[in-house]
C-alpha cells in the first residue's frame, strides 16, 4: 500500500493542482472567516470578554443550550439504540421505508421542522392538546427546546450503530450461548461492549449538532430571556443590536466548545474503528 502510494505520487498527475486548489478554497471559505471571529475578540480586553460571556442572561442560555442538548443526546442514544436494533435484527414489512425515513431530520430544512413541531405541540395541536390535560406544556417551554433538539439529532445514533450491528457476527452470540450465557448475559457482556464506542460517537454527534442548532428551536421555544433562550439565538440578538463584539465573544465560546467536541468525536471514532478491527 505504502509502496504503491509513493510510486503513484510520481506517476499520477494532478497532485499540485488538486492539493493547491483544496487548500486555497478551504482557506478562503472556511479558515479565513473563522479566524476573523477569533481576531475580532482579540480586540476585547480579558475583562470585557469575561463580563460578556458570564452575564446572567448568557449563563442562563448556556444552561439551556448545554442541558437540553445533553438531554436530547441521551434520549437519542436510548431510542437510537432501540431503532437501530429493530432495523437490523427484526425483519418487518415496510422496514426499508422506515429506514429511509430515519434520515428525514437531515433532509428536512430546520425552519420547516421548527414550525411543524410547534404546530404539533402547541396547546391546540395534535399532541399538545393531548398533553395539556396532563399539565404538560411543550411548545413555548423548555420541553419544546428538548423536542426540537431530539428531532434534529435523531439520525446520528441510528446511523453510527447500524453498520456495527450489521457487522456483528452471529457466531459471537452463539459462542456465548454455547458457553452457557443467558440471553441477557450475552447482550450485556458480548453485544453491548461492541456497541459502546459507536453509541458514544453517535451521542457526541447528536449533542454537537444540538448545541449549534438554531432554526428548529426558535419557533418552538418562545425565546423568553433567562428561560427559553438558546445561546445561538442570543448571538443573533446581539448582532441585531449591532453589538458585534458581544456576538463574537459568545461565538468564540461556542466555537471552542464545538472544536473540543470535534476532537472528542474523532478520538471516539478512532477507538470505534480500532475496536471493530481487532
Amino acid at each position: 500500500m505504502n509502496a504503491t502510494a509513493s510510486t503513484s505520487r510520481r506517476i499520477l498527475p494532478g497532485f499540485g493542482l488538486s492539493l493547491g486548489f483544496t487548500l486555497t478554497y478551504l482557506g478562503l471559505i472556511v479558515l479565513l472567516p473563522l479566524s476573523a471571529a477569533f481576531l475580532k475578540t482579540a480586540g476585547l480586553t480579558w475583562d470585557e470578554f469575561w463580563t460578556t460571556i458570564t452575564a446572567p442572561r448568557v449563563l442562563a442560555s448556556y444552561r439551556l443550550s448545554f442541558g437540553a442538548s445533553l438531554a436530547a443526546g441521551a434520549l437519542n442514544a436510548f431510542f437510537g439504540l432501540l431503532v437501530a436494533w429493530v432495523l437490523v435484527r427484526y425483519p418487518f414489512p415496510g422496514r426499508k421505508l422506515v429506514n429511509a425515513l430515519v434520515d428525514l431530520p437531515f433532509a428536512l430544512p430546520t425552519a420547516v421542522a421548527g414550525i411543524a413541531l410547534t404546530a404539533v405541540y402547541a396547546e391546540n395541536g395534535w399532541l399538545g392538546g393531548l398533553l395539556r390535560p396532563l399539565g404538560v406544556k411543550v411548545a413555548f417551554n423548555e420541553l419544546g427546546v428538548l423536542v426540537a433538539l431530539t428531532f434534529i439529532g435523531l439520525p446520528f445514533v441510528v446511523r453510527t450503530l447500524q453498520p456495527v450491528l450489521e457487522e456483528l457476527e452471529p457466531e459471537l452470540e452463539e459462542a456465548a450461548a454455547t458457553l452457557g450465557a443467558s440471553r441477557w448475559q450475552t447482550l450485556r457482556r458480548v453485544i453491548f461492549p461492541e456497541l459502546l464506542p459507536p453509541l458514544l460517537t453517535g451521542f457526541a454527534l447528536a449533542f454537537a449538532r444540538a448545541l449549534g442548532e438554531y432554526g428548529s428551536v426558535v419557533f418552538i421555544s418562545g425565546n423568553m430571556p433567562m428561560r427559553t433562550e438558546i445561546t445561538p439565538l442570543l448571538i443573533i440578538t446581539k448582532l441585531e443590536q449591532y453589538d458585534y463584539r458581544g456576538a463574537t465573544a459568545l461565538a468564540v465560546v461556542m466555537l471552542v466548545a464545538s472544536f473540543a467536541l470535534l476532537l472528542l468525536i474523532n478520538t471516539l471514532q478512532k477507538w470505534s474503528d480500532w475496536r471493530t478491527r481487532s
Partner: peptide, 21 residues
C-alpha cells in the same frame, strides 16, 4: 478534520463570520 469543520460550527456562527469579514 479541517474539511469537516463547517459541520461542527453552529449555522448562526457560519453566517456571523462572513458579517465580520
Amino acid at each position: 478534520t479541517l474539511i469537516d469543520l463547517p459541520f461542527a460550527v453552529s449555522p448562526v456562527i457560519s453566517g456571523l463570520v462572513y458579517v465580520l469579514l
